[in-house]
Design a protein around this nucleic acid. Structure first.
Lengths: 339, 339
DNA sequence: ACTTGGCACTCGATATCGATGAGTGCCAGC
DNA sequence: GCTGGCACTCATCGATATCGAGTGCCAAGT
């Protein structure tokens, strides 16, 4: 009974603080939520919660604020993911439906997420390593220049310009194109990279340099894992986080401009199909210690291609945010699967 | 003589205010710059400048701040574009050299500009309408699905997925590919769009639907002007604009997230090859009335393909910013020309 | 064993007040 | 037309006082 009420109190504190952005005291707590007890009782519980590290007071005589640990408990045990309203679902669908190519899908997803959660949205491009080769194309740009284009099953197009040094006859180009496609089409990107090794022996010596140049470019395209590009949007919402937002937005903006940080933000989580919530200091990066990240993988048929998520102040509406992120991930996964 | 000195005073005020971010008074002015006159004299000039609307005082009994009109005069007549140091030139070169594809070039340019000017950088993708068709490629994704790929002379790749409804034999695909390339390669994008009209008659009736589907997709790619995408970076610098930055960053961030606003920001200037400076209220968009935009077109051989620029507080270092923007535009133009 | 009302206490937030001083406008003299 | 002098304005800053939300603790009640 006691333990139960303490958890109720914690939940109430989190909810109140999230909605008011102000430290919450015992009196206002009993007023707003109908716990059937007096402020004094609440105070006792609060003191206990503070001892256990779930809440803290900014100043000696102020209300309580949830700590990271408090939010963690709230997310893990005191709340459930809030399903979206049908209006929101419709919005997602209509927002995402008109998308043409992959770039467009990602761009729309970012804006959608940002709008829905009113926070900063981050979307990772579908990973190349999970996708397969759809087509390889060689186009001569000038006498000594080739464009190598790789088209993947997720609709992504990678391109590289190659300096051949010598002139490349069209016949060689056609031959090479045919062989490359025969060798790689349908294979997973990493596998395709491996198969390339079988190729060069079929050509004469003076073709070698050209061929190997093309190969290395293609290889680059195939293995370029760091091309795991990430798109971000909704930074305007950062300002909304409050004028009271700790230490201003500068470090946050700075961190968000680092691709690497963004990628790590989305996390190398164990199971990408389950919602991941990183709260405050759980984000390794300093400067993001007052923010939380809600992320989840998206993709086809249980196979997660990439991740997406949002970043906001630790004092965010977790149930709502989690609901939005999960819903968007599902829709996008479906769409990417179709394309 | 008198007029000359008044202009000197205005220049001094702008320079001081830009470097200190504080209203500048008559006394400190004479100290810092060696005008050979007394503070009282300066005060007279200042009063005159204020009457004419070039400067203003935030409060009675405070120093003067340049108005938009003052900055305008400063930019037009009192300053000259500051050439970069050789160190900076080297930085530009090394920063831009490793670029692989067009995306990469644009991304690097944005970061370079942001870093160099310590402001928000905006770069427009090279316009498609000015470029020409390098190659058209058709790739079958599945039995009833085609990918139409357009490669332009600026290295840009446009892609569209087409539902054909019926199965498309490889022979038709090859034929169509050959004809499309013969018809369009080398032509400017708008011209190429026109020429497409000549094509369909060469095919049989039951091929019509497929062909016309492909054509309309290609046509879309060719004319899609709104694909004038814009990339932005360096938003972290917004925070640097000061805690004193008027009305916080919110409206600015919001404006910057609108593609349309960004595009208008770069401006439909008369002659894109000349540096354009928009100061404060000259930017139509409200919310950007305390910011200035320095932009210029870039491209090959005097032909401007797109624009780039930076956005900062009206109290920016105009000569330096203009120098950086111009220098970067030149280098990028050269690189895009090569690619 | 909890809960509750009461009460003294803390301390951030807010308001008031005066001193300070940078900066101004104006004027009379050079 | 420049300059020094002078009275005046007003934002800034620090000190002081007040206010009140919120706390911790205790003794009494159930």
């Amino acid at each position: 009974m006691l333990e139960d009420r303490k958890l109720d109190v914690l939940r109430a504190i989190v909810e109140d603080y999230v909605s008011t952005h102000e430290p919450v005291g015992s009196k206002t707590l009993v007023e707003r939520h109908n716990l059937g007890v007096s402020p004094a009782t609440i105070r006792n519980d609060m003191a206990a919660l503070e001892d256990e590290g779930y809440i803290a007071q900014p100043h000696t005589s102020a209300g309580r604020i949830p700590t990271d640990k408090g939010y963690r408990l709230f997310v893990d045990r005191l709340s459930s993911v809030k399903p979206l309203t049908t209006a929101e679902r419709r919005a997602i669908q209509s927002f995402l439906d008109g998308a043409m190519d992959l770039d467009d899908i990602v761009a729309r997803t970012v804006r959608l997420l940002a709008q829905l959660t009113r926070q900063v949205a981050v979307v990772q491009y579908p990973s190349l390593s999970r996708s397969s080769v759809r087509h390889v194309e060689l186009v001569s740009l000038s006498t000594t220049r080739l464009l190598v284009v790789l088209i993947t099953s997720t609709g992504r197009v990678e391109q590289r310009v190659v300096e051949t040094g010598t002139e490349v006859p069209d016949t060689l180009l056609a031959e090479l194109r045919a062989q490359l496609n025969a060798l790689t089409v349908g294979a997973r990107l990493p596998d395709a990279a491996g198969r390339l090794a079988e190729l060069p022996i079929h050509f004469t010596d003076d073709q070698r340099s050209t061929v190997s140049a093309v190969l290395s470019a293609l290889l680059e395209s195939l293995v370029e894992e760091h091309q795991d590009r990430v798109v971000m949007g909704g930074t305007a919402n950062l300002a909304r986080f409050g004028p009271d937002f700790p230490l201003s937005i500068h470090p946050v903006l700075e961190a968000l401009e680092e691709q690497m940080v963004l990628l790590r933000l989305l996390g190398e989580a164990s199971d990408p199909s389950v919602l991941q919530v990183k709260i405050g200091h759980e984000n390794s990066h300093e400067g993001l210690t007052t923010t939380s990240v809600v992320s989840v993988g998206y993709g086809t048929e249980g196979e997660s291609l990439a991740k997406l998520g949002v970043l906001g102040p630790t004092r965010m509406d977790y149930p709502g945010t989690m609901g939005a992120v999960r819903a968007v991930a599902r829709y996008v996964g479906k769409i990417v699967g179709e394309a």
